[in-house]
Nucleic acid binder design. Structure first.
Lengths: 174, 174
DNA sequence: GTCTATACCAAGATAGAC
DNA sequence: GTCTATCTTGGTATAGAC
């Protein structure tokens, strides 16, 4: 299920800028955001670091594009909406397949003014559709996020969350 | 309810080192971990930055002490264990009262080898005691964490999570 | 346990030529 | 759109005197 055109962040970028975002994503998944520097990103592209500033005014502007990309892909991965069980499974799979992008886009404050208006809401609305209730949807989203982020950060004693814990969570919201 | 002596991280520190940790906590809550530098910490104490290295071998060692302190205080705040509802309320209150310390101690990987053995487990065990089941306890903990961290990061559209969403979560686990 | 002085490094970003 | 050269800042950490 694809993102509506008016929400798609990539449509505002030049083709070259899209390539830069792609490379940034590669580096991000390889080494994390703190060690993604303008220099390592430039190396990945085979260009010099200052050249990046022809495409993005700052590292922060680049981050915004990555966050927008994550919201778009996440919203797409969660559609079409069927059951709570399937929704949670897809949420987990998407996050696990792109751990650093997930962490980047869900941790810390978000610069809403810099995102396409409506994109963030569109990305999360499957939770409301699946539960049929705003508060249930919000609680389910928060719970799934908690599970995912603790799993990505290796916070469960066993390393990852046992399937039975995931089942328990789904059961409570079904 | 106080932490068992053999788990208490502060008992291994000199009095002066404890003061340094205290000051670090103050600076942490004021400005966050990324902008807590050895220089700003030294300023807070009224000493020069290099003097800190007489008490802690690195910034990372200091971080470990802060994480241990958070685990200790969290475990204390959650005891004695009564109901799921009360547990969740105290979890939320403690986190909200110490937002940066909470974020520091729950985000990213944790250096378990550097912590007093058993402290992390002791801190989290109220969730198992309150639910009476390992998987339910784990799911409840993850859900509460998701709610708290999204709230601290301003990720809910309204800024903070509505009380009704918290009620919804508690209801599912009661 | 504190100081001063300093080494060392890496980051983001700008200027201006090509 | 790319380059080279460079600026500026600010971090962790060490050496050695007091």
């Amino acid at each position: 299920m694809t993102c509506p055109e008016e929400l798609d962040p990539t449509l505002l970028l030049t083709p070259r800028a899209c390539q830069v975002v792609d490379a940034a994503r590669t580096v991000l998944e390889r080494q994390g955001w703190e060690t993604l520097t303008m220099r390592t990103l430039a190396d990945e592209l085979g260009i010099a670091a200052p050249s990046l500033y022809k495409h993005f005014s700052s590292k922060d502007a680049l981050k915004t594009q990555l966050v927008a990309l994550a919201l778009k892909e996440n919203g797409e991965a969660l559609r079409p909406v069927t059951t709570v069980s399937r929704l949670v499974r897809r949420y987990r799979e998407t996050a696990t397949a792109n751990p650093q992008l997930y962490r980047l886009s869900t941790s810390g404050p978000i610069d809403r003014a810099a995102l396409p208006p409506g994109l963030e809401e569109w990305s999360g609305s499957p939770f409301f559709e699946a539960t049929g209730d705003p508060h249930r949807g919000q609680a389910l989203w928060a719970s799934a996020h908690g599970m995912v982020i603790l799993e990505l950060d290796g916070r469960f004693p066993t390393g990852s969350a046992p399937e039975s814990t995931w089942r328990e969570l789904v059961r409570h919201f079904s």
